[in-house]
Nucleic acid binder design. Structure first.
Lengths: 340, 340
DNA sequence: CTGTTAGCGCATTCAT
DNA sequence: ATGAATGCGCTAACAG
């Protein structure tokens, strides 16, 4: 019967009449031990219910098998997808994941980083609560001074020198704009009052800015008379609903609405429905796929990014950085695809 | 400037001319140290960029601040919701989450448990890959022998003696059946050929069995002539689509389809659409909410369970078990609500 | 309030 | 192929 007290390597050494170190080797570097003794040791370990102590091991050897994942929202399906990929690939390389959902709270984010540092995490995949330029968390210098590898995912900190996997935001904006030019704001149907409503994230969010900029570029070239209205908010559902609701009341129905992420787009659609505005009175287009809608024959054109791929790439990049701490930081960009 | 080498408690002790233990206390039990020295120590810690070593601490004091979460699928929104709740509440009690997505693979599950044991996790929230009675993982005895607290969530292992938070599965089945009796298989419209198609999870899954049993009970009482066809599968989308597709071909369109979870229901709807069968030719009803569909005016009646609540309760229960290892295991049931 | 001593469990020397 | 000694960084005892 397995004791309630912890079984250590010493217990099993005593059990087989060897010393600690031999047991340690038998368990970690089997080739350095005679097969016969190894078997006896493994046998004993099983019988006694031996469980290696990760703390003791981690204390001795300085490298840990831990990768931290810090993200602002588990419930965003796009993030869930990325985390799935990270988790799956981390496992393949024998790393365990320590997950932190910061819930958009900078304090929780800071605590998460502290915890990861104290656990000597080998790497960190970070998607901070904000990508606005003036968000300069205190933990930054500590992180940079530490020898933990860091890869940012999707959201990034303003020039912090870490690697990153980001989406092609300007490109997504451009693609949307070109689609609108081809199908909505066509020369023949264009009027002076045509307005495009862009529902964005936080006002200084890099991602929102880039996406918006893509739109402006592509639209500006050919469509001097399409006016763009922008509503700033955040990347969640409820505020988007409220914003759009207000806009509809004061400005009426725009010709098209562009939601800068999935939840925003859903929010806009919800506001439209509340207001009793049928979806064929205007065009709605978004970034990120609205899941499962194809099943109901609902098509909302959108730029789709492969979250699984982004997550996988982030982990790959992290492994590179972990292998070679000197490796130059690099930024990978995942392109989206317009799906109509 | 922070050194690249680790700063330990000893370094900062030297820096302020005190001994290790005083520093340790200043950092962990501030009230045991004179305010003045405490300040100097905290100051020094900051300057030197001190990071506590969780391994050393964990080795010394045997209790860890880690909670493991082992689940079969991060991408199931219902699970994502539960994990969100767990994460949020764990943080409030100063526990970090170690997350394992087993991807439905029993081997990965076993590895996850091993890892958690070796990290001396204080608690574990487990949703195993299978809830079929013949799934008896090897790690069970080790887990039982260990002093790690365990709470099962949603899926459970057949009488393993651990606490659990589960859904009211029979109740959900009954509620669905009663709804069908009231609105679909009404006496006046009932015919001998009326069939109800239930699309279930694995054939021996406790959850599926319970839900199905609920249906049979409620239906059997009053509806001798409603035939039930059951398709066994798993709890994911693709197999459900395939199953229902096949059924439609061979059996034609049933009077109603009942999907035993969210992804199954979506799968059924997808198969219907592929087959060009309009949704008002039959009734579709499910368990778990299909997210965001209200936005599009699509209503699929379903029994909704509060995943956030379930997750939160699991964590509460875990804390209870952790506080008092003797506490009797208990099973909490979360009731669902029919939403039409 | 502060210091001394000791040891958590394991793996890295260097021996044999 | 195996062993002896040592220390990773921290904190619980018990002093003082």
């Amino acid at each position: 019967m397995p004791a309630s007290r912890k079984v250590t390597i010493a217990d099993i050494a005593r059990h087989v009449g060897m010393t600690n170190i031999t047991v340690s080797r038998a368990l970690n570097k089997p080739e350095m031990v005679r097969p016969a003794t190894r078997e006896r040791i493994e046998q004993a370990a099983l019988e006694l219910g031996y469980v290696p102590n990760a703390f003791a091991r981690g204390l001795k050897r300085s490298d840990s098998r831990l990768i931290g994942v810090v993200t602002a929202s588990l419930d965003n399906p796009f993030y869930a997808e990325m985390i799935k990929a990270i988790s799956r690939h981390a496992k393949q390389h024998d790393y365990a994941i320590m997950l932190f959902d910061t819930d958009g709270d900078p304090r929780l984010e800071a605590m998460a980083i502290e915890t990861l540092l104290s656990y000597q995490a080998a790497g960190l995949i970070l998607s901070p609560v904000s990508d606005e330029p003036d968000y300069r968390p205190n933990y930054l210098t500590r992180l940079q001074a530490s020898d933990i590898a860091v890869v940012q995912l999707d959201r990034t900190l303003h020039d912090c020198g870490f690697s990153a996997v980001v989406l092609d935001n300007p490109g997504a904006g451009e693609r949307v704009a070109r689609y609108l030019l081809a199908h909505v704001f066509t020369p023949d149907r264009r009027t002076r009052e045509d307005r495009l409503l862009v529902v964005a994230g936080p006002e200084h969010s890099r991602i929102s800015r880039e996406r918006l900029h893509g739109v402006q570029t592509a639209l500006g070239e050919q469509a001097g008379d399409v006016g763009i209205d922008v509503l700033w908010g955040d990347y969640t559902l409820a505020p988007a609903v409220a914003q759009v609701r207000g806009y509809l009341k004061t400005h009426g129905v725009p010709r098209a609405i562009f939601g800068l992420n999935q939840l925003i787009t859903l929010g806009a659609l919800k506001a439209l429905r509340e207001a009793g505005i049928d979806r064929d009175q205007l065009s709605v287009i978004g970034i990120d796929r609205l899941p499962y809608l194809d099943i109901f024959d609902i098509t909302v054109p959108c730029v789709v990014h492969d979250g699984y791929r982004a997550g996988a790439q982030a982990l790959e990049q992290l492994l590179v950085q972990m292998r070679d701490p000197q490796a130059a930081p690099c930024t990978l960009t995942v392109r989206g695809e317009l799906v109509t």
